Amino acid sequence: MKPVIVRTRNELAAARARVEGTLAFVPTMGALHEGHLSLMRQARRSADSVAVSIFVNPLQFGPGEDFDRYPRTFDADAEACAGAGVDLIFAPTRDVMYPEEPQVTLKSGPMGEVVEGAARPGHFDGMLTVVLKLLNLVRPDVAIFGEKDAQQLAMIRRMVADLNVPVRVVGGPTVREPDGLALSSRNRYLSQAGRGTALALSRALQAGAEAAEDGADAVIAAASAVLGKAAAADPPLVLDYLVLVDQATFAPVASAGPAVLAVAGRVGSTHLIDNVHLQLGKEH
């Protein structure tokens, strides 16, 4: 059965009122791939009904970023949602989400100014603002976000806790190509040679994870060795960051225990991120 497609707030409110039982929600910016679909299937297992939003949010793109060229493939996305068992698609225009230029927005705080936030100032302010708006409009019982965007997931969990938003936030595992490249809507920007360079991100994470029992310095050294070779490739990888951080706060981590190794870089004009969870030091 095809999902119901709504585009206005009134249409969404009417469709939401018809939902019986629990509702799981997967917010997206469209250009859907298997990573998104895995979240939808997870949502299907988590609740009686599934809603998806498709909206390219201008607030989370900085000057010179790829808002205008971000892929918009609504017809294909709707077909993919139908195949994943989605019941409801909310596909608003910019005017529906922002009838007026917003005067009150969320501030992501210190956690939004580090790692990805340092590379993309203001990004998390815009992301949290639209996610809160969507949660208020859709009113789901559970919302599912991909673990590939680890800092985004951590910040949404913090927002929900700090602002007492009545929703359960769940992470969905990163989906990868057979060669390890994390699925991303931006992968379609890559040339064949650029895709080869981009593989250094996942390979660096793998190398770092394999060195985890030897401590933080060994992790960074192993990952940096892979990234250094990619910096000399054609086209080169321009590194934005390589960090070991706490999964909940994204504060730096150096002592033994759980951590996230996060990396981001640019191949040409394409910004790509990836991460892996690991255990620093030898387990006793």
Results as ranks from 00 to 15, higher is better:
residue 4 V to D: 00
residue 6 V to A: 01
residue 7 R to V: 02
residue 10 N to P: 00
residue 10 N to G: 00
residue 10 N to L: 11
residue 11 E to M: 08
residue 13 A to Y: 12
residue 14 A to L: 15
residue 15 A to P: 12
residue 19 V to N: 03
residue 20 E to K: 12
residue 20 E to I: 01
residue 21 G to A: 04
residue 25 F to T: 06
residue 25 F to W: 05
residue 28 T to Y: 09
residue 34 E to V: 04
residue 36 H to Y: 03
residue 45 R to D: 15
residue 46 S to A: 15
residue 47 A to I: 04
residue 51 A to S: 12
residue 52 V to F: 12
residue 53 S to G: 12
residue 56 V to E: 09
residue 60 Q to W: 02
residue 64 G to R: 05
residue 69 R to T: 15
residue 70 Y to N: 00
residue 76 A to M: 11
residue 78 A to P: 07
residue 85 G to Q: 14
residue 89 I to Y: 14
residue 93 T to G: 15
residue 101 E to K: 09
residue 101 E to V: 02
residue 102 P to C: 01
residue 102 P to S: 03
residue 106 L to P: 11
residue 107 K to H: 09
residue 109 G to L: 05
residue 114 V to W: 02
residue 115 V to R: 06
residue 122 G to P: 11
residue 123 H to D: 08
residue 124 F to D: 07
residue 126 G to E: 04
residue 127 M to K: 03
residue 129 T to A: 00
residue 136 N to T: 10
residue 137 L to I: 09
residue 140 P to T: 10
residue 141 D to Q: 05
residue 146 G to S: 08
residue 146 G to M: 00
residue 147 E to C: 05
residue 148 K to C: 02
residue 149 D to C: 02
residue 150 A to N: 05
residue 153 L to A: 09
residue 153 L to Y: 09
residue 153 L to N: 13
residue 158 R to P: 02
residue 159 M to Y: 01
residue 159 M to S: 09
residue 160 V to P: 15
residue 167 V to H: 13
residue 168 R to I: 06
residue 168 R to K: 15
residue 171 G to K: 12
residue 171 G to A: 07
residue 174 T to E: 07
residue 178 P to A: 03
residue 181 L to E: 03
residue 186 R to A: 00
residue 187 N to P: 01
residue 187 N to W: 00
residue 188 R to E: 14
residue 191 S to C: 05
residue 195 R to E: 04
residue 199 L to M: 09
residue 202 S to Y: 12
residue 205 L to T: 07
residue 207 A to I: 02
residue 209 A to I: 02
residue 209 A to S: 12
residue 210 E to G: 03
residue 210 E to Q: 14
residue 212 A to H: 08
residue 216 A to G: 03
residue 219 V to S: 10
residue 220 I to A: 00
residue 221 A to H: 11
residue 222 A to P: 13
residue 225 A to H: 14
residue 226 V to L: 13
residue 227 L to C: 12
residue 227 L to I: 13
residue 228 G to M: 10
residue 229 K to D: 14
residue 232 A to C: 11
residue 232 A to S: 13
residue 234 D to V: 13
residue 237 L to G: 12
residue 238 V to Q: 15
residue 239 L to T: 09
residue 245 V to M: 06
residue 247 Q to T: 03
residue 253 V to E: 14
residue 258 P to M: 10
residue 259 A to M: 14
residue 259 A to H: 15
residue 260 V to S: 13
residue 265 G to Q: 12
residue 265 G to N: 14
residue 267 V to R: 05
residue 271 H to I: 06
residue 274 D to H: 01
residue 274 D to R: 07
residue 275 N to C: 09
residue 276 V to I: 15
residue 279 Q to Y: 10
residue 279 Q to N: 13
residue 281 G to Y: 14
residue 283 E to A: 11
residue 283 E to R: 15
residue 284 H to Q: 13
residue 284 H to T: 09
